[in-house]
Amino acid sequence: MVADYAPLLLLFAIAIVIALVMVGGSWLLGPRRPTPAKQSSYECGITPVGSARERFPIHFYLTAMLFIIFDVEVAFLYPFFVILRELPAEVRTFAMGIVGVFTLLLIVGFLYEWKKGALDWEDPIERRRLQPTAEPNPQPALQPVSGEQ
């Protein structure tokens, strides 16, 4: 019954209300006295180097992509394990064979991923290119930041 999921709906509603109250409350009640230092990007207390909006390495994207693929795989395995014990014996063998083939296919993909080094965070070629240069980076002074950021 749909009514069985009322607690879930309540949970969503409470989460939304808490989020709105926290953001809205600090927006309404909090004092706003911006200074250039406050407005600059936060880099753990170090003087910020450039904007916070930077291009990210493709590794993040690749990791997210691989995560989604295995996420979807697990989504297919949930219903299998729910019914595994209830299946009649001969159907169970069949279903386990199907899941075996399915998992084997993904293990092939996983081994490919591993061997190609997609899980290594540092690209060996990239590391060679980024060998330390002679002079260290000059420290940029704290810049007053325009209102846009």
Binding site: V72, E73, F76, V101, L106, K116, A118, I125
Partner: peptide, 23 residues
């Protein structure tokens, strides 16, 4: 389900191929 397994494997290989750069 098996076809989906093939599709997911293709996804793995494709994303790695596209993301690898000069090597």
């Amino acid at each position: 389900v098996v076809v989906v397994g093939v599709l997911l494997t293709v996804g793995v290989i494709g994303s790695i191929l596209l993301a690898r750069r000069r090597s």
